[in-house]
Design a protein around this nucleic acid. Sequence first.
RNA 1: GGGCCGGUAGCUCAGUCCGGCAGAGCGUCUGACUCUUAAUCAGACGGUCGAGGGUUCAAAUCCCUUCCGGCCCGCCA
Length: 485
Amino acid sequence: MVEFNPEDHFATDRLDKLKRLQNEGINPYPPSFDRSCALAEFTDRYDDETSLSDEEYRLAGRIRRFNDLGGIAFLGIADESGGVQLYLDDETEGFDLLDSLDHGDIIGATGEPIRTDRGELSLRVQQLSVLTKTLNHPPRDELNEESRLRNRPVAMWEPDVRARLETRFDTISEIRSFLEGRDFTEADTTVLQNVYGGANATPFETFCEAKDQTMYLRIATELDLKKLVVGGFERVFEIGKVFRNEDIDTTHNPEFQMLELYQAWADYEDMMQITEDLVCYVVDSVLDGSRTLQYDGKEIDLSRPWERLTMTEAIHRHGNINVESLSDDELETIAREHGAEFPGGFSRGLGIMELFETVAEPELWDPTFVVDHPQETTPLCKDHREKDGRIERFELMVAGAELANSYTELNDPVQQGEHFAAQLERYEAGDEEAHQMDEGFLQALSYGLPPTGGLGIGIDRLVMLLTDSQSIKDVLPFPMVNSKE
RNA sequence: GGGCCGGUAGCUCAGUCCGGCAGAGCGUCUGACUCUUAAUCAGACGGUCGAGGGUUCAAAUCCCUUCCGGCCCGCCA
């Protein structure tokens, strides 16, 4: 028999008040309350009126201010829309309830609009009722960092926490409306997978009892979405969580929100266009038409068109290194001097990528398309139509970080198989993040993926830019925290 | 993975360097109060000092181990 002891979980002074209510035959958690309108609707209607109606209102909200003067009392209640002051006196039915109410409790009040002697619009309460008795004290002061992360429902009462989450939810909604306006179909694909792919990352493992087999949480939505394109859905996107079993820090959460879209009959040039259009659309919608962002004390200029640099140009500009003139050995030496490691073995292309990430990436502040990566940087992208050893890939860099990643999708099944084999070799050589061999995906490609452009955007990163947040935790409703005993 | 900072009342935090009765503000509780703006006045209560071990006559304070959070570096997106 497991006993539940309320005293171990809740504030004793509030439990006493809860009991007092129950002893008086009052249900502290009634099933419903038929309010006549949101609080803002009440204030909007009467704020500028000199004469008030005698219309009856039923208002509800959380107690945020509690001034009990003895014979009369003023309560400030709030809901999502705003706040209203309640005026109570000895004519109020339920006036005695005040003895059992606290800050944070949710109450309902029936009455009519009045102005107090100080001129403040209020509801003169004829009847007061408890809607939800709360059992812990709401914080009086701003929460500290740890409480803000652990006690999310209460943290959301703080305006800045609330504002960032609103921007997050708006952003996701605006992305949808943008893509639906361009005839994209929203898809949802598998989260639990036998084979993980679409990115180079360490997966979360789980176990499927029914199949008696290890499964993985997806690290990307890419492969399933391309299968949908093979299946005839020519413009698809998915906004969904992906999972990577890597470190937690200011820019990484193990589960994060990713947009991926695929468009048949398009290439990476088209994807650059759609990326600019989409990001600017979201910024316009969420930030009311602003063309600049303030981030980390500096300004980000979103003026179009955004600059394009090849990866080697970026290295030359910001590191003053001409990689084309270096031998493989010289390149490896310089890359290692910059801290690069090559767990599955060095190759020229990986050396260039590593050098880019250390010398150029942090310097790219205003939106910049870095294009034409070395082939070794991903197995899923088509070879460049002109440049030997390069692929038709771009990454959008903003504020020194990657915001988007895009390819002209590789649709040659034989070449795809060769790339997977090369990845398998790297895996066996010690690169734990190398891509897996995916027979199902190869089979899909064998039935013909039309020429297709694909794009991935990290939504959390985008929201960080929009809200001037330096930590991903600030833009997550429920950032990952370790459990306490 | 490495370094630095932090964890003390319901909340926000002093106190730790230099060991000596466990502190403040707000909240809570009791009382007063018929126009307040978490009001005002009087009084009271409130603690496993993150956890465990050690040193000491004596530990929030010093030492060791460990958990949790934050920041920086490394790695990844």
